[in-house]
């Protein structure tokens, strides 16, 4: 019996990729990679987003945004955001090429001047359109932008979840020291993300609701809400009209496309 136990322990320590032998860092990365893999191959999608900003007195302000995203092989996604409301920014468009390594490329199109402006992507922690979402929260979540540590397994709202810690690689420009995310074990969908600011205090919580599956593979939440615990404000994103594999090409994401955006 003792021999058997010894043999078993040897097996445990020698078997490199076995789940028992995984370090929390390896397991954390594996979860992120698996989630990324499950969402890969969507090619492109378009969707409409209603952004509802709410201040601590309950006053609401709305923005309607159309989104087009294009999957790039071996690099981050390309995205084009076109604003429909508020009316004074109608036609303003935001083009972003995210990269797995290094800064993203971003341009802003100002329709009144017909001007395409390069903007600095180091404003990661800056507020997106006055909302509680920072640029880094809406950017495409490339695995390479964080390091990971698996924290624990936990039941969240009746689902068995992995609780994973993510740490921004670009610590200097990120507004966060860490993120803690809850993903269900069945489908690797995100249900909750907690954001910890530079002083490592809990700043915001993002929750996901009403997931729907598209093309039998891609899960998207129709309702996302970011609550800022420090200023009492919140921002809701309500997604409709998701369409995948619409046949978008690189040309829908060049600078001419910004000027055509309406």
């Amino acid at each position: 019996m003792r021999f058997f136990l010894l043999f078993f322990m040897c097996l445990l320590f020698c078997y490199p990729a076995g789940c028992f032998g995984e370090s929390p860092e390896e397991k954390g990365l594996d979860i992120a990679l698996e989630a990324d893999l499950r969402d890969a191959g969507f090619m492109d999608f378009t969707a409409d987003m209603l952004m509802v900003l709410r201040n601590k007195h309950g006053r609401e302000s709305k923005r309607e945004i159309r989104i087009r995203t294009f999957e790039v092989e071996n690099d981050g996604d390309k995205s084009l955001l076109i604003f429909d409301t508020p009316r004074d920014v109608k036609g303003t468009a935001f083009l972003s090429f995210s990269h797995k390594v290094g800064d993203d490329d971003q341009w802003l199109y100002l329709p009144a001047l017909k001007r395409v402006k390069r903007i600095s992507s180091r404003n990661k922690s800056g507020s997106f359109m006055g909302s509680e979402f920072a640029y880094e929260d809406i950017a495409s979540l490339e695995v390479e932008k964080y390091t990971y540590t698996f924290l624990r397994e936990e039941t969240y709202e009746g689902r068995d979840c992995f609780v994973n810690g993510s740490y921004p690689v670009d610590l200097k420009n990120s507004g966060y020291t860490r993120l803690v995310s809850w993903r269900d074990k069945d489908e690797y969908r995100l249900w909750k993300v907690e954001y910890y600011d530079r002083k490592n205090t809990h700043l915001k919580t993002l929750t996901f609701k009403d997931y729907e599956q598209y093309l039998g593979k891609y899960w998207r939440a129709a309702d996302m809400e970011m609550v800022n615990h420090q200023n009492g404000k919140s921002t809701k994103l309500l997604w409709t009209n998701y369409q995948f594999k619409t046949g978008l090409t690189d040309r829908n994401f060049d600078k001419n496309s910004l000027k055509r955006a309406k």
Binding site: D103, D105, K117, R118, I119, S120, S121, R122, N123
Partner: peptide
């Protein structure tokens, strides 16, 4: 020309 270098444009 427009050139971006970190926070500098």
């Amino acid at each position: 020309l427009q050139f971006v270098a970190g926070n500098w444009l």
